[in-house]
Design a protein around this nucleic acid. Structure first.
Lengths: 226, 226
DNA sequence: GAGCCCCGTCAAGGACGCGTCAAGGTCGGC
DNA sequence: GCCGACCTTGACGCGTCCTTGACGGGGCTC
């Protein structure tokens, strides 16, 4: 479980980040000032640091320089959109990546994962890779591979796969899948599920007629078997 | 790949310099004393030397004099702001350029490049290079080369390339690209992406009709394939 | 064993997204 | 003030994807 250190003075945003990353089972420590960030990093070295460039005491760039003095830990910078110069300087000082505010949570998580992967840190948190004997799915990169060849999935197919794969081994009701992929109000359109699961099985299963991974539980819903 | 020798007693700064210059694929050797600097330069002549004037054993000026006794290697001096006299003396002794502390990394890199160019050292190591079988991109220097010829990209094209290339192999959503290049509020202007990717492909791809590096994932976003 | 329900399959239509081209419009340099 | 480079915007054709309907089969109930 990788440790993250978040340096962000705005407490609302810090809280939101902490909660969201903890929900993805990272270990998270949040601080509000540059000085405490350097102290915290020294006391308990994190696997990755997220730094806001606009801090009250030190400049975010000073934090990066301070860390880079002794540590190779990956650093992701949060920056306002209009501070191009600051951003460049942060990268020059040794930041690994940056995210422009405002940003989506999933985007930030994707960068965190990528940075940890580059740094060769074991990222056990909801790995983007889903593997079965028949195929491999990379949910983050939206890539599917079967027998060494890439398989193209349409957006709706991806959405459906994601909704199902998030609960491996357990059963998901048809209504739940419909509501998640097509939105509330589509709970009755079980047709969609039939059509799309047929396509998914044709694209991913070894013998679409006898699916081994996308399994129908008659009268109840569907189940993903890794 | 030019070799740089860094002479700096403050270990945090020495490390920061080393890491940052290595990141630009220079070969870097760092030492902390004037004596070891002269020894290192004699053992393995560098293409450029960066010297801090405030050293514990020898004065930085002595290092310059020691080098100039037998070598024309370019020398860049790091000096505190208030030591004007020291600075002049260093230049008199044969230093080529100086940078006043505190300095930005990009400034130092610029001087390094300039000094190497003046010294006619092949400076191939210009920053983060992105290479594909069809073309080469130098994001730092904003240069694109295809089939040996330089290709001009407009500012927006560079911005878009940068936003995409930062995640090689993985998918970037259209909204994300739009927000990063054109700013928040432009997430719906998918027109821009179509127009600009068409231009990029025409400028960089071998067969723009069948792009191999700037790939569209229909309904989702775009992907850069190195 | 007949009827019903649920599921899988197939095909056709229409909608949507993408690539392409071309025409204004804006900004900065000469 | 003119010219060129660049950005924005609209229109059009094409291909893909989503939706929808019909059909058939298997299992369960009666």
């Amino acid at each position: 479980m990788p440790r993250l250190l978040i340096v962000e003075d705005e407490s609302a945003l810090r809280r939101a980040l902490t909660i969201n990353l903890k929900a993805r089972s990272y270990e998270v420590e949040g601080v509000g000032t540059g000085a405490s960030a350097l102290r915290a990093a020294a006391a308990n070295p994190p696997d990755l640091v997220i730094v806001d460039l606009g801090l009250p005491d030190l400049d975010g760039a000073d934090v990066i320089a301070g860390l880079r003095g002794w540590s190779q830990v990956p650093i992701i910078v949060l920056s306002a959109r209009d501070s191009q110069a600051q951003k460049v300087r942060a990268l020059d000082l040794g930041a690994d990546d940056y995210v422009t505010k405002p940003f989506g949570m999933d985007e930030l998580v994707a960068r965190v994962r990528a940075a940890l992967r580059r740094a060769d840190v074991q990222d056990l948190a909801v790995g983007p890779l889903v593997t079965t004997p028949s195929f491999t799915l990379d949910l983050a990169a939206k890539r599917a591979v079967r027998n060494g060849a890439e398989v193209r999935l349409t957006p709706t197919e991806w959405h459906l796969v994601e909704a199902l794969v998030r609960h491996p081994g357990t059963l998901v009701s048809g209504a739940q899948l419909l509501a998640e992929v097509w939105g509330p109000g589509y709970e009755k359109e079980t047709n969609y599920l039939r059509v799309y699961f047929a396509q998914l099985r044709r694209k991913l299963e070894d013998s679409p007629g006898r699916p081994r991974h996308f399994i129908t539980e008659p009268g109840v819903g569907y189940r993903f078997e890794p």
